[in-house]
Amino acid sequence: MFKKILVFSSALLLIAIMWGCGKGKTSITLAGSTAFQPFAEKLADQYMATNNNVVITVQGGGSAVGIQSANSGAAQIGMADLVTLPKEAKDLTATVVAKDGVAIVVNPLNKVTDLSTDQVRDIFNGKITNWKEVGGIDAPITVVSREAGSGTRSSFEQIVTGINLKKDALIQDSNGTIRETVANDANSIGYVSHGLINEKIKALKIDDQECTVENIVSGKYKLVRPIFLLVKGSLEGETKNFIDYILSDEGQKTIKAEGLLPAK
């Protein structure tokens, strides 16, 4: 009985292995940052359309997962959107493929249009708790932030500096849910990736600089983070080709068209 199961399962395994390799295609897996994931998927589709010997799979998981899986080899390319890479990433070859602004957003009904970095810090730390203290109506501020470990959150905290998030801040687990929460609550403030701003939320000027593509590229708007692709060892083979494609004019054009900013 057990012998039969053994024979059957090893046969199954063999078929599965042959299935995977039989087509003679190189497979590349990307994992990590959820902010870059949709862009990576789009770029992968375009790349595969012209290079049909490569199969590219894109997975999310977050920046920490990107670093972890590039280190462990679970993914050939890790994606991370952090201002500075942690020490776990020191053996990885990092390539900046795009830049992303972090917009401080409020509800469109909110009268406040600009804040200074200090005011943003005080609001998120709970020192300023009412909109009237920063020129708005008399209403309590609802702070919305991301969960610990989020790339967007750590970028936000590293650039604004001195953030010690107040205890009763709402926590949402993605850029999209922050946008929904801010769009639904007239007194809330949050932060999202620049590419996700739409008419349901309003991006604030920070230190008199508007969160626009020009200001981000010129460096005037300071809440900007790079997006890294991480590869273990040196760049070579199909992995290098794919990253080169992302950095090419065509790849960068896709990144820009979809709402991120080109690396250079």
Binding site: V65, E147, G149, D168, Q172
Partner: peptide, 26 residues
């Protein structure tokens, strides 16, 4: 989901299950 001991039913809270699901991916 704020990590906060609630003082009133109107306070935001994070449960054990939410804590795992929110932070596991990172």
């Amino acid at each position: 989901n704020s990590v906060n001991i609630p003082h009133s039913p109107l306070d935001s809270v994070r449960t054990l299950t939410a804590n795992i699901a929110l932070e596991m991916s990172y």
